[in-house]
């Protein structure tokens, strides 16, 4: 399943990216440059989304590609899609950076209630893969509060504790919402 796209050009791009990652893992600088050219805009978008500040996101991006360089040897194209692997690394490093800085600027409670659901914007959903469309569909089937909690955790790196504070519910309640949502999501994706 992985990227799940049936378009031949997407499959080809994916194969080339996986190949470049494997070569980077063997120490090829030019292969890492290929990976950077193909993915830096996407990964920079992820850094910006999570960190919210350009300078910080630029530092994170450098750190991420140095990490890609060191870890590419452990990338296994049989087991993971290259863009999934890279996106997970970029998101995790950005969240670590956010937490090391002591989190984002906290917002007043009234503002927190008005935070719009971070739903996909129309323009970029044009490039959605089959897997992406299915995931959006399945999240759309969830109860609002569960979908919102999962999206906020994903896009803002919020922990259970933060989600509970933002929604004004006890920690245990938030954990239940998310865990029920995740189970429903998994079942929907397996249908």
């Amino acid at each position: 399943m992985a990227d799940g796209s049936s378009r031949p050009e997407a499959d080809e791009a994916r194969r080339r990216l996986a190949d470049a990652l494997v070569r980077a893992g063997r120490g090829s600088h030019s292969a890492l440059a290929e990976v950077y050219d193909a993915t830096s805009a996407k990964l920079f978008g992820i850094c910006l989304r999570i960190l919210g500040e350009r300078g910080e996101a630029e530092d994170a991006l450098q750190d991420i590609y140095l990490n890609v360089w060191r870890k590419a040897g452990s990338f296994d194209p049989e087991r993971a899609s290259p863009i999934t692997w890279l996106a997970a690394l970029a998101r995790n490093r950005s969240i670590d950076r956010l937490r090391a800085r002591g989190g984002r600027v906290s917002e007043p409670v009234e503002a927190a209630l008005q935070i719009p659901d971070p739903a996909p914007d129309a323009a970029s959903s044009l490039e959605a893969s089959e897997a992406g469309s299915r995931l959006s569909g399945c999240i759309g089937e969830l109860e609002n509060r569960k979908a919102h909690a999962i999206r906020t955790a994903f896009f803002e790196g919020a922990t259970y504790a933060e989600l509970a504070v933002r929604s004004g519910v006890p920690l245990g309640t938030m954990k239940s919402w998310v865990r029920r949502g995740l189970l429903q999501l998994k079942e929907c994706l397996e249908r």
């Binding site: 996407k42 920079f44 978008g45 991006l61 692997w85 996909p120 970029s124 995931l135 999501l185 994706l189």
Partner: peptide, 20 residues
């Protein structure tokens, strides 16, 4: 990761500065 990472598709790509 395979299940959830496709969510990044909704994040708008942003070209980083040349010097990076």
């Amino acid at each position: 990761e395979t299940r959830l990472m496709p969510l990044v598709e909704s994040i708008r790509p942003e070209v980083p500065d040349q010097g990076i």
